Deep mutational scan, measured.
Amino acid sequence: MASQGTKRSYEQMETDGERQNATEIRASVGKMIGGIGRFYIQMCTELKLSDYEGRLIQNSLTIERMVLSAFDERRNKYLEEHPSAGKDPKKTGGPIYRRVNGKWMRELILYDKEEIRRIWRQANNGDDATAGLTHMMIWHSNLNDATYQRTRALVRTGMDPRMCSLMQGSTLPRRSGAAGAAVKGVGTMVMELVRMIKRGINDRNFWRGENGRKTRIAYERMCNILKGKFQTAAQKAMMDQVRESRNPGNAEFEDLTFLARSALILRGSVAHKSCLPACVYGPAVASGYDFEREGYSLVGIDPFRLLQNSQVYSLIRPNENPAHKSQLVWMACHSAAFEDLRVLSFIKGTKVLPRGKLSTRGVQIASNENMETMESSTLELRSRYWAIRTRSGGNTNQQRASAGQISIQPTFSVQRNLPFDRTTIMAAFNGNTEGRTSDMRTEIIRMMESARPEDVSFQGRGVFELSDEKAASPIVPSFDMSNEGSYFFGDNAEEYDN
Rank of each mutant, 00 (worst) to 15 (best):
I265V: 15
D16E: 15
M222S: 01
T373V: 15
E46Y: 08
R261S: 05
I475F: 14
S367P: 10
A129E: 07
L79F: 10
A234V: 09
G187P: 04
A387W: 05
M105A: 14
R452P: 05
C164L: 01
F464K: 04
N21Q: 09
T188C: 12
R74C: 05
T45Q: 04
N417R: 13
G228F: 12
T433V: 15
V242D: 09
G394V: 08
A284P: 07
D491E: 13
S478N: 05
C44L: 12
S60W: 10
D16Q: 13
G485K: 02
T232S: 11
M481S: 05
M66I: 13
R446K: 13
F253S: 13
Y313T: 02
R195M: 04
S314T: 05
K31G: 03
G393Y: 03
I425P: 01
S165M: 07
A427D: 02
Q308N: 07
E372P: 05
A182K: 03
G460F: 01
G212L: 09
A366K: 09
F338N: 09
G462T: 00
R8F: 03
R221P: 04
F291C: 14
N247D: 08
A237V: 11
R156L: 06
T424D: 01
Q168L: 02
I96Y: 07
M239N: 05
G158I: 09
L56C: 08
Y97D: 03
G126V: 14
S262L: 02
L418S: 00
G212F: 09
G200M: 12
Y97I: 10
A323R: 12
L61D: 02
M331C: 04
Y496L: 11
T6N: 10
R305P: 00
M105D: 04
L49W: 09
E192W: 13
K227V: 01
E11N: 05
I201C: 04
S377H: 04
Y97P: 00
V186R: 00
G158K: 02
V352H: 00
T215M: 10
R99S: 10
Y289W: 03
C44N: 05
G5D: 07
Q58A: 00
N76D: 12
P318V: 07
A401L: 12
A263I: 05
T433K: 11
A131H: 08
G102P: 06
